[in-house]
């Protein structure tokens, strides 16, 4: 039986000029628990200035392959009031530690409508995968300088977590390319 806490997807912003990026997920009982856990799991090192979490169950996730196979994006049949959706997209197969990037928000009556709109609107790069997230389901870390400082600055000062802290230790040793034990110096 699956009794575990719900899964939350985590979006991390490295610097103010970069988009929020999907970094992975955590399990948590509520959004604040999710944010705290996300900080412990994904911000042990710089850089980070902001984090968002959203319940995985609220996310519409569609890949290029699914769209090519004609996955149907049902438009809303009800006369729903439009609400805000955040759109995330992946555009490259390059080696990366993040998945989809935030590209913008739009108003639509349903996630499917939002995705259709996003496909029309965000055309600057070919999309390999889309995530559509209702803005109302997203919980964000506080933007106040105090919170940013207390949440994300400590990782910067812990320079011993960087390999550069240890300098160049033990150069490669060509002279040992002999039988072990010959070398008595």
């Amino acid at each position: 039986m699956d009794t575990q806490w719900p899964r939350w997807e985590v979006f991390k912003q490295d610097t103010p000029s970069k988009p929020h990026q999907a970094v992975g997920s955590v399990h948590a009982a509520d959004p604040f628990h999710a944010l705290l856990t996300a900080r412990n799991v994904f911000a042990r090192r710089p850089q980070a200035v902001s984090m968002w979490v959203a319940p995985a169950s609220a996310i519409l996730s569609v890949t290029k392959e699914e769209l090519a196979e004609g996955r149907e994006l049902k438009p809303s049949t009800f006369d729903l009031k439009p609400s805000t959706y955040y759109v995330f997209r992946k555009t490259s197969h390059k080696r990366s530690m993040t998945f989809v990037d935030y590209v913008g928000e739009l108003e639509a009556p349903s996630p499917e409508d939002a995705l259709k709109l996003a496909i029309e609107r965000f055309t600057d790069a070919p999309a390999l995968a889309w995530w559509v997230v209702p803005a109302s389901s997203v919980t964000k870390s506080e933007d106040s300088p105090e919170t940013v400082e207390s949440w994300f600055a400590p990782a910067k000062d812990k320079t011993y977590k960087q390999q550069s802290y240890y300098g160049l230790v033990g150069a490669h040793a060509g002279k040992h390319k002999r039988t072990q034990g010959d070398d008595d110096e």
Binding site: R45, R95, M97, F99, Q162, Q163, Y165, Y166, V169
Partner: peptide, 24 residues
Amino acid sequence: YGPYSRAMVRICAEETFHHKQGKE
């Protein structure tokens, strides 16, 4: 597989510190 690859890229970046501190 995308998700495994991404986890590994993140882990490798952090793991180099583990290796270096031990070697030192």
